[in-house]
Amino acid sequence: MIPAAFDYQVADSADAAVAALVSHGDEAKLLAGGHSLIPLMRFRLATPAVLVDIGRLSDLSYITDAGDHIAIGALTRHRDLETSELLGAQAPLMAAVAGQVGDPQVRHRGTLGGSLAHGDPASDLPAALLACGGSLVARGPNGDRTIDAADFFTGFLETALAADEMLTEIRVPKAAGIGWSFQKFNRRAQDWAIVGAAVQLGDAPKVALINMGSVPMRSAAVEAALASGAAASDAASVAGDGAEPPEDLNGDAEYRRHLARVLVGRGIEEAQS
């Protein structure tokens, strides 16, 4: 449980962090809450030569009303999302999901940007952002660009971020009054989901699945069924279609596909009620 040796730097601004990424290239990793990166380092599954600590950039920790969407700083902790009245009113799915991540310690340390940049298909917040139809702002040496959540997760623990880019803001469209549901199935309260489903209805209903493939994903089949007015149970019955879920001690692929159908069904029913 002892990480390999590394250098440690503290960034005093997002620009400084990006500059550090530019100068160290692949060797460097940003450190936010450290709740995904440090465990990997302790198992020596990640061995970055340089850690650039962005955890103290308090100017990137905010939740603000930006007109048609809520803007969230990348360094905002899960706990702040969970307890934000603004988020609770305008993007309740996002706030509710944040409250289901890990345990209180994890929620006080982990950041939204870190969770999304890590791109873990078993994580909750990527699915939430997908179901909310959100987008992400990345800062690189040439300035900012905005990436749609649907285009962000590109492979197992891989995202559309370049090695010298950093997430600065997450944008979540307002969804007050729109039906939503979050279904997380796990064995202990603090655990990652064996399978989970995030549902947000509205004009274009979105259903995102957790731990049903190598990336955080939306279920096109369920969304299409819902868009064409299918009943909850019918829409849910296609939830596992095409998915290639991981197999581990908690569940094989068959069980996960079954769970996906059950959880999506419950999610749609709850969102509709």
Binding site: F43, D103, R188, Q190, D248, L249
Partner: peptide, 16 residues
């Protein structure tokens, strides 16, 4: 051993 870490070896907490 497939689950030597407390991530996968499920020791319960008060919540369970």
């Amino acid at each position: 051993c497939q689950n030597p870490s407390l991530l996968d070896y499920l020791v319960p907490s008060a919540a369970e």
